[in-house]
Amino acid sequence: MKKSIIKLILLMCTISFLNAENSKYFDIDEYIKFTNQEQITTDFIKQIQKDALKIKQQNKKVKIVLVYPGKQLTDYWMKSKVSFEKRLDELGIDYELVLHFTKPHVETRVQSKLLLKAIKDNTDYLVFVLDASKHAKFIERIISREKPKLILQNITTPLRKWQKSQPFLYVGFDHMIGSQMLADYYIKKTKGVGKYAVLYTANGYVSYMRGTKFIDYVSKNSDLKVVHEYFTNTSKEKAKLATLDLLKQDDDIKFIYACSTDIALGVIEALKQKDLVGKILVNGWGGGSSELQAIQDGYMDITVMRMNDDNGVAMAEAIKLDLEGDKQKVPTIFSGDFALVEKGIAKEKLEELEQRAFRYTQDNAK
């Protein structure tokens, strides 16, 4: 009886937490409808896919600062920077770009200092992320000012509390859409039955959207049960240790759901050590170079691949429109496309996806 009551309380707490987190953000379609941005969003997406058209006019050189959590194994952040620069160059924009790489989750104090410096240095456009709760406080200080104009990367769900006073642009690849694609793959592959584990990044936005939402979707659409959950701070070594720990308890789980590239590579190392590659499924998240290599080598079973360079192009095109006085043509959100890449994919198909995803960055993001 007591166990049943405890389970009920835990379930009620989980539902309450999910509802609270859901209420913080607009879904993409919901926000676009809320702001009547259907047409400008459609037009902007078309502009991203076209060749660059030179800027009509520019009165002064603009300063752009990127504060990225780029000290990771994934090449997403460097590719973002390269595609952004190349599109700015093609557009003929006169700019100065300053790049700062920080460690994800653990350097919020460093990040806050860099944001304050960007404001003091009269920055025109600031590109940052929103993952930890502390980030929101920094961001609110910035969007209350006229300068710098803020681009939030790796988030596509506007915060409700900011209503229409939003950052200049949200840009990235919707975490929930990508995670649901992976969930559908796992449900089909396992026939919806069995146990699995989830390895999160840190306690924040990305873990919620990629991890918690994944579990919620799987539970609603299958009989799969999550039996282990770990936070890893996006550390490959911590992911490896977490995997070894969970395997001591359950070596019959069907798959390990990894919320990032670094985590996936740590899981793979542990599976290699235990000779369980191919017996327990593992995914990547993002489809960068290291993940695609792991797919080709047969160590990774599936990844959701971002059409990576579109986000850099979107940032450049938004700045161009703003400089031309056409800010009203910039939607609040740009969310890029995904493709599933499975182990055994034909070489020709993979090359086709790489050409599309890395149209500006193949062999350049090193």
Results as ranks from 00 to 15, higher is better:
113 K>D: 06
122 N>C: 11
326 D>M: 12
103 K>T: 06
10 L>W: 00
14 T>I: 11
34 F>C: 04
242 A>F: 12
167 P>F: 05
194 G>Y: 11
289 S>D: 07
207 S>P: 03
16 S>A: 13
40 I>Q: 07
112 S>H: 06
121 D>G: 07
95 Y>I: 01
17 F>R: 02
299 Y>N: 06
71 K>E: 05
194 G>H: 10
256 I>T: 04
7 K>W: 01
301 D>G: 15
44 F>S: 12
175 H>G: 08
319 I>A: 10
73 L>D: 02
122 N>F: 08
207 S>R: 12
271 L>T: 03
62 V>W: 09
325 G>V: 02
246 L>C: 08
334 F>Q: 02
212 T>Y: 10
204 G>M: 08
165 S>C: 01
1 M>I: 14
352 E>D: 11
41 T>L: 14
311 N>P: 00
312 G>F: 07
313 V>D: 02
294 A>C: 04
26 F>R: 01
334 F>V: 03
105 H>V: 01
34 F>H: 10
290 S>T: 09
148 P>R: 10
161 K>M: 08
51 D>W: 02
124 D>N: 14
92 G>E: 04
357 A>H: 06
70 G>A: 15
274 K>Y: 04
331 P>H: 06
211 G>Q: 02
43 D>R: 07
88 L>G: 01
259 C>I: 06
117 K>Q: 14
125 Y>P: 01
110 V>C: 02
289 S>P: 04
275 D>G: 06
293 Q>S: 12
102 T>H: 10
137 K>D: 06
279 K>G: 05
196 Y>N: 04
187 I>L: 07
193 V>S: 08
306 R>A: 06
161 K>D: 14
332 T>S: 11
288 G>D: 15
314 A>G: 09
344 G>V: 04
166 Q>T: 14
82 V>R: 04
266 G>K: 01
17 F>S: 07
332 T>D: 03
113 K>W: 02
136 A>I: 15
198 V>S: 05
81 K>R: 09
330 V>W: 11
351 E>H: 09
291 E>T: 03
207 S>Y: 15
266 G>I: 09
131 D>K: 04
148 P>H: 12
176 M>Y: 03
128 F>C: 11
277 V>N: 05
100 H>Y: 15
251 D>C: 01
240 K>Q: 15
278 G>W: 04
306 R>D: 04
39 Q>E: 15
119 I>M: 08
140 E>V: 07
25 Y>H: 13
121 D>N: 14
157 T>K: 10
310 D>A: 14
142 I>R: 02
231 F>P: 00
40 I>S: 01
270 A>F: 09
339 A>M: 11
288 G>I: 01
226 V>R: 06
202 A>L: 00
